[in-house]
Amino acid sequence: MMHKPYLSLSHVGKSFQRGTNITEVLRDISLTVERGEYVSLIGHSGCGKSTLLNLIAGLTPVSSGTVLLEDKHVNAPGPDRAVVFQNHSLLPWLSVYDNIRLAVDKVWAKESASQRKARIMEKLDLVQMAHAKDKRPSEISGGMKQRVGIARALAMEPKVLLLDEPFGALDALTRAHLQDQVMQIHQTLKNTVVMITHDVDEAVLLSDRIVMLTNGPSATIGEIVNVNLSYPRKRIELVSQPEYIRCREAVLKFLYERHKFVEAA
């Protein structure tokens, strides 16, 4: 019997129509992700990374091809594919606790109130934000907001966690700290993650595989790099490891030699 992949995209394409203009953003994307795998999507801005993530999330319907998660068709958004959005998208009128509660009350509606409370606090502890549970998003820093966003997504216990440039809006130090935390969470929960990034080091540090997209329009998968580094990974030790250097070089060569961004950024 053939091995069935956990998440699979087969010949997925996406076109947007505006008036009589049809733009093909993604073409013929086939990818499988195993349970527990951490996969990064990398490519130049505008190549359709976010569109691809939205297709997996079910937020936008595919134009052609199929997305299967555990053999079920993905055709609508759902908590089994929780998304952490680039700009945190916490609701500003709710406290940190209530933001997560909104998701937990909906997804775990059958559980008792105390079970749900335990879920919220557990995830807040996981991202080390329990101390700020009664604060509003406007009262905490950008890195903290993103941690709450991650906690909210994790609280849904998704089959696949989708991260849309989760560290993009953060300063370098906060980003490094958060990357370490996400890496640790991935090691603890062994969850399946698909992450968009435009940061080569981040991709190599966190991923088991790096999926590189060609430039749009009609972007597709150009190359996939396997990162054969054992966990736990330590960012300082990695820098001198041959495997780290090889992966980094492969991604850089892909992005800056073979698929150079032609338009002025």
Binding site: A57, L59, G78, A82, F85, N87, K106
Partner: peptide
Amino acid sequence: IPDDYKNVARVIQLNPLQ
């Protein structure tokens, strides 16, 4: 209403009343 809020609502599958 920002699209982000709408997307959050769709991911956690709020019904129209919620």
